[in-house]
């Protein structure tokens, strides 16, 4: 198998940066398998249900809250469109042959996104400097996600489970923008002080 290169591979270095103190930790999360699963009004929900059940998920879900199981993380990104992030390609490989692609098209997007994780005490303050979204603890709880923009670039931001009581945000950015956005995000983070991890950590 050839080397799978991250869009950030030549840009990031581990270490501490910015102001003293370490209110933020950045890491790149492995994307795994990312599948867009879609359909049409009137039929998608019915067609998707068995697929979602096999993934341990309940229906097509809401527009602002991700569904999670041990097999998949699902984002309903449009009325008849789901983004499924699977930990194991074999889980999807087992399901896909049974799907009528003509009625519920599937699209492999496993190379299209870079996932940058921002975690720590200042993670909410950082996100407030990046996006016009209310990231207050009550307004944006763990499990919620939003599609908006950072630096004029469309991104999806998912609030993952807190770590050590501190908020965690996964930023899904288009791969070709990743280096530029990473630079922009970390520049914004300098006043808080941050640590960059280069070891890719598994996580959800």
């Amino acid at each position: 198998m050839p080397e799978l290169r991250s869009a950030l591979s030549s840009h990031i270095a581990s270490g501490r940066f910015g102001a003293p103190g370490e209110q933020l930790v950045f890491s790149e999360q492995p994307l795994g398998t990312l599948i867009q699963f879609s359909g049409w009004r009137g039929s998608f929900e019915t067609a998707a249900r068995p697929v979602m059940t096999r993934l341990g998920l309940d229906g097509i879900g809401a527009f602002d809250r991700a569904q999670a199981s041990d097999k998949a993380l699902a984002f309903r990104i449009a009325p008849e469109r789901l983004l499924l992030r699977l930990a194991s390609a074999s889980d999807w490989a087992a399901i896909a042959p049974g799907i009528d692609a003509a009625q519920t098209p599937m699209l492999d997007l496993s190379h299209s996104r870079t996932v940058l994780r921002a975690a720590g005490a200042a993670a909410r303050d950082l996100m407030a400097r990046l996006m016009p979204i209310d990231f207050d603890a009550q307004a944006f709880a763990p499990g919620q996600f939003v599609q908006s923009g950072i630096h004029s670039t469309g991104v999806l931001v998912h609030r993952a489970a807190d770590e050590g009581g501190a908020p965690v945000f996964d930023i899904y950015m288009p791969r070709s923008f990743a280096a530029s956005l990473w630079d922009f995000v970390t520049q914004t983070a300098l006043p808080f002080g941050y640590r960059m991890e280069t070891e890719v950590r598994p996580g959800r």
């Binding site: 869009a7 791969r175 070709s176 530029s180 956005l181 630079d183 922009f184 520049q187 914004t188």
Partner: peptide
């Protein structure tokens, strides 16, 4: 921060 090389985002090829 939207100044200098961040005046607009940049896209890079793989």
């Amino acid at each position: 921060h939207e100044t200098g090389h961040h005046f607009r985002p940049t896209r890079l090829s793989p």
